[in-house]
């Protein structure tokens, strides 16, 4: 595991706040200011979205932000340029999240090398199958100290969760319910039973809960069952209101930490 991820999960056993946002949104050059504002607001971990034209695991909000970012002209090259020197500025773990095709076109080896050289700690590629990762990419990721983060859902079998756990080098992304991103609702008892079932498995990897977490209450509920939680669509909605992005981030993260 990258030392930054390791340090985080060793030092903080609960209430890890992780935030996802789409690079290049709302404006092309907003990536870095948003990232800086998130770090300054005390967020523990950030997932930087790499937009794709056909994000099948995403709901309306992230579809919209991805399309807007692509219309703004975002590319992987630009994302990497925007992240240049980020390690002189912040120490929190940074994860790149997106779909496989743009990464493939960039060249997976080139991508991993570049990401690692910028101080990126891990990658989430939901449509990269475990089999392909194991066969073709694991050695490459390991060589560069880049974590590959897998998702599990309420439907993932116990045996498969064990395999994922054995293969994971960062944390496991526990998708809160069978859904695309951005669906909000209160954390239900069915979900809580699922969270507890996973917790009781005693996995070696830390667990973060994501999908549908959107405010202080849902964040707090989720944190009762895992080491922390991930918020994405709700932040993007806050960024879509036309406020300066630093202010929007500060206000949003503040309200997650300290409800009004």
């Amino acid at each position: 595991m990258s030392s930054r991820l390791q340090t985080l999960f060793e030092q903080k056993k609960e209430k890890i706040l992780s935030m996802f946002f789409t690079s290049g949104y709302p404006k092309l050059e907003d990536t870095r200011p948003i990232l800086s504002a998130l770090a300054a607001s005390g967020v523990d971990l950030v997932e930087i979205g790499m937009p794709f034209s056909d994000p099948i695991a995403d709901g309306d909000t992230i579809q919209m932000s991805s399309q807007q970012a692509l219309d703004n002209g975002i590319t992987l090259d630009k994302i990497f340029a925007q992240l240049e020197g980020v390690r002189e500025e912040m120490d929190i773990p940074l994860i790149l999240m997106g779909y496989l095709n743009p990464v493939m076109q960039y060249g997976i080896e080139r991508f991993v090398t570049k990401a690692a050289s910028l101080g990126i700690d891990g990658v989430i590629l939901p449509d990269l199958p475990m089999y392909e990762y194991q066969m073709f990419y694991k050695d490459l990721f390991d060589k560069h100290g880049l974590a590959n983060i897998f998702l599990i859902t309420p439907q993932t079998s116990e045996q498969r969760i064990r395999e994922i756990d054995a293969l994971s080098t960062g944390f496991i992304y526990m998708v809160s319910s069978a859904s695309t991103t951005g669906k909000v609702g209160d954390v239900s008892s069915v979900q809580e039973a699922y969270f507890e079932r996973i917790k009781a498995m005693g996995l070696r990897s830390p667990l973060l809960i994501g999908f549908g977490i959107h405010d202080h209450a849902s964040f707090t509920r989720a944190c009762e069952h895992a080491q922390g939680a991930i918020i994405g669509s709700a932040l993007i909605k806050a960024l879509s209101q036309g406020q300066p992005v630093e202010e929007a981030v500060r206000g949003f993260v503040g309200a997650i930490h300290h409800p009004l």
């Binding site: 099948i56 695991a57 496989l100 939901p126 449509d127 990269l128 199958p129 089999y131 392909e132 897998f150 998702l151 599990i152 859902t153 439907q155 993932t156 079998s157 498969r160 998708v175 069978a178 859904s179 695309t180």
Partner: peptide, 18 residues
Amino acid sequence: HGYYGQFGGAFIPEMLYP
């Protein structure tokens, strides 16, 4: 493995896997 030559496979997010 679900391939035709170099093409095919099952590149799906975990949510579709089961």
